[in-house]
Simulated assay, not measured.
Amino acid sequence: MTGESLPTPLRDGVGLLARAVDYAVDSLDVVGRADLGRPTPCAGWDLRALLDHLNDALLALHEAATLGRVFPDIGDYAGGTAVDPIAVLRDRASRLVGAWTPPSPRKEVAFGDLALTTAIVTTTGALEVAVHGWDVARACGVDRTIPAGLANDILDVVPLLVVAADRPVRFALPVELPFGAAPGDRLVAFLGRHPL
C-alpha cells in the first residue's frame, strides 16, 4: 500500500490518537475516588486496575514518541492506593499529545524485536485509549458513546488491529447489534462489549 492508499486513520494516526485522548480524558470527569472499586466491562478488573492499565498504555505511547521504542511487559505505573490515578492520567494525557505533535520525523517504533510504523502505534493507541475511555464511563454507570467520527475512523482499521487470534484472550467475541446501531456502539461491540 502506498501512503495515499492507506485508510485515513493510518495516514493521521497522531490526530486520531489526540481525539481518542480527548474523549478518554473527558470520561474521567465522571469518576470519583469512591468509584475505584467498581467493576468494569473488562473482565476481572475493577476501575482502579483499568485506570492503572490506561496509565501504562499512555506511558508506553509516550515512550514510543520520545524514545522510539516501547518496552513490552514492563508495567511501570506503580499507582498504589495513595496515588490519585485520575490526576496521573490527566497529566500523562496532556504530555502524551504534546510528545507526538508536531508529528515526529520518526517512521518506526521498536516494540521488542518488531519494528512498527508510527501510524500503527498511534492508531493502535487510539483504539486502546478510546475504548478504555468508554469502559471508564460505563463502570461509573454513565453512557458516553464514543463520538461517531472517532468511532468510524477506528472501525476503518480495527479489523487490521484485532484478529481472530486475539479472541477470546485479549477480547471477547463480538456482540451482535441491531441494524443501524451507532458507530460507537458497533466499535465496542466488535471488541466484545455490550453497549446497550
Rank of each mutant, 00 (worst) to 15 (best):
P159C: 09
L150T: 07
T123V: 13
R19K: 14
A182I: 11
L51I: 06
G80R: 05
R193C: 07
L89P: 01
A34N: 14
D135V: 06
D26F: 00
A110V: 11
V21D: 02
D185H: 14
V31Y: 05
L161H: 03
V97M: 02
S27I: 07
L155R: 13
R38N: 10
L47M: 09
L96G: 03
P103C: 09
V157K: 07
L59M: 04
L127A: 05
L127R: 04
V21F: 07
D185T: 03
T101Q: 13
A110M: 10
V163D: 10
G112E: 04
P168N: 10
L89F: 11
L17K: 01
V136Q: 00
L36W: 11
D84F: 14
A182K: 14
E176A: 14
H132T: 06
A49W: 06
R170P: 00
A115T: 10
L161G: 01
D84I: 12
L96S: 02
L54R: 00
V129P: 02
A87Y: 09
P195S: 10
E108M: 10
V25R: 13
A115V: 03
G68A: 06
L47C: 07
P7T: 06
A64E: 02
V70D: 01
G133A: 03
S104H: 11
A151Q: 01
D22A: 12
D156H: 00
G192D: 01
G32N: 11
H53Y: 06
V129D: 01
G192A: 08
M1D: 14
P9N: 05
A130R: 00
V175I: 14
D84V: 15
L116P: 00
D185E: 15
I86A: 15
D113F: 11
G68S: 06
G79N: 06
M1Q: 14
A182P: 11
R11P: 02
R90V: 08
P147V: 13
T40E: 00
S27K: 08
L61I: 10
A137H: 07
G3Y: 12
V162E: 03
R138W: 05
W45P: 00
G141K: 13
G112K: 10
I86L: 13
S5L: 13
P7G: 03
D185I: 00
L114W: 10
H62D: 13
G133R: 02
D26H: 00
L114I: 07
A130L: 04
P41E: 01
H194N: 02
H53E: 12
V21K: 04
A189R: 08
K107L: 15
L160D: 10
V21L: 09
A137D: 09
G125E: 05
A43E: 15
V142S: 12
A181I: 12
L6E: 11
L89I: 02
A60P: 03
D22N: 07
L67M: 12
G79V: 07
V131S: 04
D153Q: 14
D26Y: 00
E128M: 10
P105C: 12
F111Q: 01
A181W: 05
P174V: 09
